Amino acid sequence: MPLFEIETTAHIMIGWAENDIEARGFAHEHYPEEEITRVSKRPRDVWVISKRLLGLETVSDPCDTARECLARASGDKVHAIRLFMHETGSDLHEAQKMIETNMSLGW
């Protein structure tokens, strides 16, 4: 079954569907109030996110550290950013990027 990327006005979903119509149906079922802006069939059956494009290449293990900070902060983004800065010595911009990226990944 092909892997599709379905973008709406507020979300990007990755999922398997038999065809474009089924992929659109999936998006409409879960986010009926959002307009579908793009549906793309992925060339392979895997989704890859470049850590370099996200700016995560400078920290040795960003996900574990950021997720630990989010857990200790009970999901409070601002507190997690402060904890991340303290733990890693990162500046505000880098810490914010790391915490928000991990929040979007469903820490």
Rank of each mutant, 00 (worst) to 15 (best):
L56P: 01
M103Y: 03
R24V: 00
S104E: 08
E29C: 01
V78Y: 14
D20K: 07
S90T: 15
V78W: 09
P32M: 02
R42K: 14
W47E: 06
E29P: 01
L53K: 08
D45V: 04
W47T: 00
Q96Y: 03
E68C: 08
L53G: 00
H28F: 02
H86V: 09
R44N: 05
S90C: 15
E68H: 11
S90P: 14
S60V: 07
I49D: 01
R38I: 03
L92Q: 15
E34F: 11
E22S: 05
I12P: 03
I21N: 05
M103E: 11
G15N: 02
F84D: 04
D61N: 13
G15H: 05
I99E: 08
V48K: 12
E29G: 00
H30N: 08
V48Y: 07
R52W: 08
L105V: 02
G89R: 13
H86I: 13
M98R: 15
M103I: 05
P62A: 05
R72F: 07
L54P: 04
H93Q: 15
P2Y: 01
G75K: 11
K77S: 06
F26Q: 05
R42M: 13
I99D: 04
I99G: 10
I81Q: 15
A17P: 01
A23S: 07
E33Y: 09
I81E: 06
V78S: 09
V39T: 04
C69Y: 10
C63F: 15
F26P: 09
V78G: 01
R52S: 07
W107C: 10
F84S: 03
P43A: 00
H11I: 04
N19R: 08
Q96K: 15
E29I: 02
A23W: 03
H86N: 14
I36Y: 00
D61F: 09
H93T: 13
L70T: 05
